Amino acid sequence: MSSSPGIKPQEHVDMVYISIETAIALASVVGNVLVVLVVCVNRTLRNTTFSFIVSLAVADIAVGVLVIPLAIVISLGLNTKFYTCLFFSCLLLIITQSSILSLLAIAIDRYLRVKIPTRYSIIVTQGRIYVAICSCWILSFVTGLVPMFGWNTLDAHGNLSSSSEIVCKFTTVIRMDYMVYFNFFGWVVAPLTIMIALYGEIFRVIRQQLNRRAEATCDADKYYRKELKLAKSLALVVFLFAVCWLPIHIMNCITFFCSKCYIPEFATYVGIFMSHVNSALNPMVYAFRIKRFRVTLIQITRRCMLCKPSETTSCSISTPAIKDKVDVNL
């Protein structure tokens, strides 16, 4: 890679890294703000599943607003106090945990919806959904802040005191055994395995019901076909999460289990980019795969961003008007 005149190669790499991260952050924030706005505007989307989707969108907004800027700061290797750098690093972990726990909650919600459809509305109330969302975030903070309570590299630095300044790098303050055993195996692999099993069972139950109800009422058939389409969309979100996050975790495992193995800096950067770009992909999945979401998004874009009035209204969002035009089918 050639560098511009007067710019050192490392500075050039930093500029490219910051530019890409900034673009990812902007796409993540804009896309997920639209997700929240669509759910707020369209009353037909205000159900239990989309409550969890909003929680996931908030986590993805936090990636763009908080995580990526902190990742840029950490990548520059600024001099900070040990626990300041450690706290910044823990914030990155908290947002990751909130994303995967939100995905797990969505999978459990969809499983209950197809497994016990007649009792679903009785068991899964809006109040319990709010409790579940709060529990996901609390658990994310608890697990993400574990290094702050001692599982860090302070002892490995010998005589370094907590008030001394260090070059702030993620791997300088976070222990790799924490990242591999606790974070990856415990809070990434385990939830992903559970989600794969849940979605496998969801598809099995839906297809079984569709086969049984081939001669049943049209409404029942429509219900399960709608559930199948939504399950496919949400399973795609889980798949993209795994594809985007596994590379950086696999590199962590290689570093931990094979100290002599060399991982190119370029590969590390790609792994970081993939983990961050995941936050910008989810709104695209919703827009392309969920008709209710897509139609409402088009309405918002036409009536607000492009300022194209719909009939007699001008650049304003009217919930009833949008609701009337949105097809309730997926």
Rank of each mutant, 00 (worst) to 15 (best):
A57Q: 08
C40I: 13
P9F: 07
C85R: 06
K81Q: 14
A59L: 10
L56V: 09
I108C: 10
F50S: 08
V114W: 00
A62M: 13
K8S: 14
K81A: 14
L112Y: 08
V54R: 06
K81W: 07
G77D: 11
P9N: 04
L76Q: 15
I53M: 14
V41H: 01
I116L: 13
F82R: 03
C40Y: 14
T49Y: 13
P9W: 02
E11V: 04
L26Q: 11
L70S: 00
V35H: 02
I100D: 08
Y17I: 07
S2W: 02
A25F: 00
L34K: 09
V54T: 15
P117S: 01
H12W: 06
I108E: 08
T84I: 11
Y111C: 02
V16G: 00
K8T: 06
I7H: 04
L103I: 08
S55V: 00
S51N: 14
L86D: 05
M15Y: 12
T84W: 09
R119T: 07
I68K: 09
P9V: 02
P9R: 07
L101F: 13
L86E: 05
I7T: 11
L76A: 12
A27M: 14
C90A: 02
T96M: 10
D14H: 07
Q97W: 03
N32V: 04
T22C: 13
A25P: 00
S4Q: 13
I122E: 11
K115H: 13
D60E: 13
T80K: 07
V29A: 05
T49Q: 12
A59K: 05
S3K: 09
I7E: 07
I94V: 15
S2L: 11
V13P: 01
S89V: 02
L93T: 07
S99R: 14
H12C: 11
R113T: 03
L76F: 10
T125R: 04
V38I: 15
L101N: 11
I7S: 05
A59R: 00
I94W: 02
